[in-house]
Nucleic acid binder design. Structure first.
Lengths: 150, 150
DNA sequence: GTCGAATCATTCATGCTCTGAATGATGTAT
DNA sequence: ATACATCATTCAGAGCATGAATGATTCGAC
């Protein structure tokens, strides 16, 4: 048996635990970095979703994000106030509110991208270029498997 | 420039965003799987800390976990009620409560390990053995860099 | 030794995020 | 036309975590 394939003997040694904990740390840093932009991670998640899928109803957004529709109301309220998204009644079905990114929203997402790239750099700064590349590829696979945007 | 090293052009493509989101999903599954054990992820985090460091005061635990000392009170209350940890006044400094894992706590951690191993299997089931090994190694590096237990 | 400041655990009130039920508006089927 | 389903919205409340206040113990200056 190769050393690489030894089973973890403690919870702390598992990949799930490590990704969970690293994810929490990253999310905390992300949250802090978003304060000047007047955004929370969920707002970025919503904008990212619209970026990937184009205009969508609030219910679709709620399903894709795995949150209650009532939460989308609050998130969309805030993003609309910032001018980041448009919110119009679907002419074909006037029950639905269609959300879409505005040019301002795209610009805001650009700022968020800078933040996450900075986080990436901090996170993987200690890694060699080869490991970093493999990690990026594997995460891409796992993200696709989990149904994350893009 | 190699394809592997292209910079992400969207927030969703960054490693930080992906680890954050995957971490949230894993934590949610972990939380659900812990219900029968009457535990929350933070309880497991506390027990894991004691497993790695041995007995520790509540304040030390709070610092290591990055939470308020008052939260440790609640977590320790619950774990003590389950018989998973012992809680004794430090004879050398009677202000401090020394927490330590009991045999029952170790057994409980064993159950938690099964859960996380199962999560690992689900998570990396679609990966080849080589990618899985690299991922495990890289996560180990990142975890150590972030100061996680073990 | 004694007094005042510092340290640790604990309690409690509060804030924040999110959910689920209730409401109203619109659409669909018979 | 009527009954039912769907979508957005509001609102009350649950759950988790924090920070201030309290009490017990220890440490340091004198």
């Amino acid at each position: 048996m190769r050393v690489d394939e030894v089973k973890p003997v403690s919870v702390a040694g598992t990949m799930a635990f490590r990704i969970g904990t690293l994810g929490a740390i990253l999310t905390e840093r992300f949250t802090a970095a978003l304060v000047p932009l007047d955004l929370k991670p969920k707002h970025v998640g919503l904008m990212t979703l619209l970026e990937a899928r184009g205009a969508a109803s609030q219910l679709d957004v709620a399903k894709a994000m795995g949150v209650a529709p009532s939460l989308v109301v609050t998130l969309a309220d805030h993003l609309e106030r910032l001018g980041a998204i448009s919110r119009v009644r679907d002419p074909g079905d006037r029950r639905r509110q269609l959300l879409d990114l505005t040019a301002e929203g795209r610009a805001l997402l650009g700022r968020c991208l800078e933040v996450t790239l900075e986080l990436d750099a901090e996170l993987t700064g200690g890694l060699g270029p080869r490991d970093r590349a493999v990690l990026a590829r594997v995460l891409s696979t796992l993200a696709a498997q989990a149904g994350l945007p893009v």
